[in-house]
Design a protein around this nucleic acid. Sequence first.
DNA 1: TCAATACCCACGAAAACCCATTGTATCCCG
DNA 2: CGGGATACAATGGGTTTTCGTGGGTATTGA
Lengths: 162, 162
Amino acid sequence: MALEHLFQGSALNAVDGKGRVSIPAFLRSVIERRGDARTIVLAKHEAFACLSAYDPGYAALKHAKLERLLEKEETSPDAQLEYQQRNLMAFAATEEVPYDSSGRILMPPMMRRKGEIGDLALFLGTGETFQVWNPELLLKDARIPEDLKDIARFRLDERRAS
Amino acid sequence: MALEHLFQGSALNAVDGKGRVSIPAFLRSVIERRGDARTIVLAKHEAFACLSAYDPGYAALKHAKLERLLEKEETSPDAQLEYQQRNLMAFAATEEVPYDSSGRILMPPMMRRKGEIGDLALFLGTGETFQVWNPELLLKDARIPEDLKDIARFRLDERRAS
DNA sequence: TCAATACCCACGAAAACCCATTGTATCCCG
DNA sequence: CGGGATACAATGGGTTTTCGTGGGTATTGA
């Protein structure tokens, strides 16, 4: 699975009173090159205190992969259960949200809480997927490289200036 | 078999005094994209204490899959028996119910008992199919990932708040 | 006739949609 | 090379539509 179009770059956008956020245009363009959906899938990131996001096609790909794995292992009860659990996490624990003509989504309240997103959302491209952070949480996370934190600080300053 | 449209997301809806439940709009849209039926098929889930649901087209697909499996294993009496059993479960032990113009089904009493559904129904997308749970039973099930239980709790809180 | 189901309408909250403004980067032409 | 025009991005606010839900009425079938 080598995806042609990769997510990259960073941006810091505001979450307004209604819970709306603009998805950065450079991320949207990747989504639309990968397929014709104007939709993103949101999930809690499995390791970091942030959200993971990708296009619907990527979710389908992930699903197909799981299916093939199951058909190989098959009848083992353990394998069956793990398949069920993964499927639940991959689909029930995610939300698909469309963005409108101006590129905004309505951040679902559940995801907003899972990601502890306040009134600022930091978008980070990570190749196959991208991440959405509360910038303050990123700065606090010891596992995040200092260079990346510098970028977050820069984006914050940039915003304060205007 | 790679289905194009997958069920995903979660929602907690009320079962009213008449036994009616709204199928969440985001699940209905998948059903209607997969075919033109405004109908769902309900079955007892084979592993969990919940119901499994899907569109009528998927039932046909499942049948074809069983057939192919039988042809591979062929004349083994064990395989024959298992085929018969699975076929029975796939068709006799299911109920097909249409939803009305406002997206509600009348939950069949038998299924309601099989799934131990009370006055709240938790819908969970799982890709090819979706599940319908009594939220309390999900919270009690040790095999369900904790992250997913968090989602169930969130949906319950959300409802209490309003 | 009676009970269960299908059909109809009605409401409040939430979400999707539309339009308008601002700032910024880009382009084009003098 | 500079400066005005242009296009697009992000954001604010108002309006319309949809969704989940409750309740009433007709219809059907035993």
